[in-house]
Amino acid sequence: MTLPNALDSDIGATHLTVPTRCAILNSIWGSNYTVPHLTQDESIGSSYLRYYGEQCRNALHSKGLDALVATHADIVDTIQQLGHPSATRESVKDHLLARLPTRGEDNTEELLCETIDLAVRLFLMVDIGKLQHGFVPGQKPLLWEGGSMKKMLQDRFGAQGDATFRIVRVKLDRLFTARNLERIAGLQIVWSDNLSDHLRLMVDDTRIAIYHHASFLEHHKNSNVFPPGFIEETQRTLSLLFPQYDKQSRKWFKAQQRKFGLDSRACAAGHLTTEERQIENFTFWHDRLGILKQVFDEAEPRTIAQWWCDRRRRVQWYTFWVAAVVLTLTIFFGMVQCIEGGFQVYKAYYPS
């Protein structure tokens, strides 16, 4: 339900009223929230609305863009055009051209493209185009130059990997969680708002991007824009990385959530059974999971903390710590003997 006049406010405003928040979520997500819902629980859609506000404010740095997207209603109108089954970039561009107060300006084509790219970002949470003030270091924007949006997404998120290779059974065991990627493999986690960057290794395999907007995925589960099964599989990757019934993972994620303003639903996506954690069950994220698993398995502890946390190889772990304890005791008793010997020498020279 779209509340009357709630979308007519300026997109550059830093604060969104509750009715406006409600109208934006219902219009873009197809949800049925009411003002009392959002008043009672301010966390509903909060991570997405933060992203929404940042994208809008960044876009308005482009001179003249406010002629096409001055209010939230303008954005919703463009997104609704994108959602039509027969929509193409060209048809949406024609629709926007009719909204322009003046035509024939030198930057008309640029404004049309930036408006469409902004709407796609807000609709799909995929970095489309080259928004001048919306670039995030390490992210790779996807270009959509023409044709249907559905075809573009199919090309980007289609099935990965060779079918023969997927026959090999690789188990993503219970230790393969986001928490352990950080504390055992030493990977720095980059929380991403870009669905296209999910599970992508960056900076010489020292950082991993994780898309955390589980609420967005939940409301797009029945989307006819993304490839069939894509949203459901992405949700399963969150269940893999943030197992709901792992107490330590939940505690770790809550600390990350408070620090970075993450979507709380990411750690409430359920858990996977042993059979579901087989890598061949992942079609769209198969390759990235395979590479990430390889990096995780090949990572060697470099600090004492990592040696303590890394229990992937139990025999090696026990051997290391037994050796460490023996070495520590040897040094300790050696120092005791040295001190005792020194004390005896001192007493020999100064018996009194």
Rank of each mutant, 00 (worst) to 15 (best):
P301H: 10
Q244N: 11
F296Q: 04
W307H: 14
F253H: 05
C338R: 11
E340T: 11
K293C: 00
N281M: 09
R311T: 08
C338M: 12
P243Q: 07
D263I: 07
K247Q: 05
Q244T: 14
G290P: 02
L327Q: 06
A324Y: 14
I331E: 12
Q278C: 11
T274H: 08
S249K: 05
E276P: 05
G261S: 02
F296N: 04
A266V: 01
T273N: 13
L289W: 07
E276W: 02
A305N: 02
I304V: 15
R265P: 02
W285D: 04
Y245F: 06
K259S: 03
V322L: 15
Q248H: 14
Q316G: 00
F332K: 10
L327N: 08
R313N: 15
G342A: 14
V325D: 04
F343C: 02
L329A: 11
R288E: 01
S264M: 12
Q256T: 03
Q248C: 06
R312I: 03
I339D: 09
P301Y: 04
C338Q: 09
V326N: 10
V336E: 14
I279Q: 13
V315G: 00
Q278K: 12
R250P: 00
G334C: 00
Q256H: 03
K247A: 10
R312M: 08
V315M: 09
F296E: 01
R302D: 05
I304L: 15
D310I: 03
C309K: 11
F332P: 02
F284K: 12
F282D: 02
V322H: 09
F343G: 06
T303N: 00
V295F: 06
A323G: 15
W307L: 06
L241V: 04
V315C: 03
L327I: 10
R311A: 09
V336A: 12
W321L: 06
